[in-house]
């Protein structure tokens, strides 16, 4: 029996967060201020995502936590353990089995369903922040739909680099109204933002929640003559051979030999279980379990 209230937060706090989530869903892409609580982990370690997950979890839910696509990094393990302790919910590494997926900086490769919720950890929710430091001014810009500055940023990229250089946290326009920062996911993931699941974004330090209801229109900003390009490394996954998943680059030794592998560990594993093998991979049954 846990000494904590279910999922750590008290019921009134969860109520407050759910209200914010409902507002966010009602106005897709709009940043809703919320009273972010002190969590038992420091700012910058996913407090926003954890609070949102805590507010939407039910006792019968199954939860998955990934960090840069992997279930086994320190942060993912810590947060998963946090919910195992405070909510006593079942956890899994299989995307297909999860009801709530909390993620840092990636969207799972596998298509999500209408009955799933994807919770993003967000560092800086304001897409205009670097060009306009005043919060008062950026709020006005969102309210009045004055987004010329956002395209100025892209213009500057092209002028300086010949192409839009933003590789992650690529700004999007939601339902033709709000410009949103989709959190630092690679631009490769941007097309996946139009999905069947509910997407919730939490920024703990900045105290903002925003949301995308299922099947919301999400368009990455670009120019007519420099269209958006969701690019990735031009290699297949060395372990499972996948051609269309986002890859991590792994340096193998001091001579600079490298290997590209799926960033989504569950996806890679599923493919290998189904028999796909990449150039450096071994058939799944043979790998030690």
């Amino acid at each position: 029996m846990s000494d904590y209230n279910f999922a750590y937060l008290d019921e009134q706090t969860k109520r407050m967060i759910r209200r914010a989530i409902l507002k966010g869903l009602a106005v897709p892409g709009y940043q809703v201020p919320f009273a972010s609580r002190e969590m038992p982990m420091p700012y910058g370690w996913g407090t926003g995502g954890v609070q949102v997950s805590a507010a939407v979890l039910c006792p019968e839910d199954t939860m998955k936590v990934i960090d840069q696509g992997a279930d086994d990094t320190t942060n993912a393990v810590s947060i998963r353990k946090f919910f195992e302790n405070t909510a006593e919910v079942a956890t899994t590494e299989a995307t297909e089995e999860a009801d709530v997926i909390q993620t840092r900086h990636r969207i799972p490769e596998q298509d999500l369903r209408e009955d799933q919720i994807l919770v993003y950890q967000v560092p800086i929710p304001e897409p205009l922040r670097f060009l306009e430091p005043s919060e008062v001014e950026t709020r006005k810009m969102h309210a009045l739909e004055e987004y010329g500055l956002m395209h100025v940023k892209l213009y500057e990229d092209i002028a300086r680099n010949g192409a839009i250089a933003t590789a992650y946290a690529y700004p999007v326009k939601v339902e033709g109204r709000y410009v949103m920062d989709p959190s630092p996911i690679p631009k490769f993931d941007n097309p996946k933002l139009e999905m069947a699941a509910v997407q919730l974004f939490g920024a703990g330090r900045e105290q903002r929640i925003y949301a995308l209801p299922p099947y919301t229109q999400v368009v990455s900003l670009d120019f007519e003559d420099h269209p958006f390009d969701p690019s990735k490394a031009d290699h297949p996954c060395a372990l499972c051979g996948s051609e269309d998943s986002y890859l991590d680059e792994v340096i193998m030794d001091d001579s600079g030999r490298r290997m590209f592998v799926c960033s989504d560990t569950d996806y890679c594993q599923s493919r290998r279980m189904a028999g796909h093998v990449g150039t450096e991979g071994v058939p799944f049954e043979e790998a030690s379990l």
């Binding site: 060009l131 004055e146 987004y147 010329g148 500055l149 395209h151 100025v152 213009y155 500057e156 092209i158 002028a159 300086r160 120019f223 007519e224 003559d225 420099h226």
Partner: peptide
Amino acid sequence: LRMGVSAGGNVGERLMAVGARHYG
């Protein structure tokens, strides 16, 4: 002016603010 934005960006901002979307 926006001192942190290039001259071209400064001149182009108002165009982009009213919907110009062709970089060239």
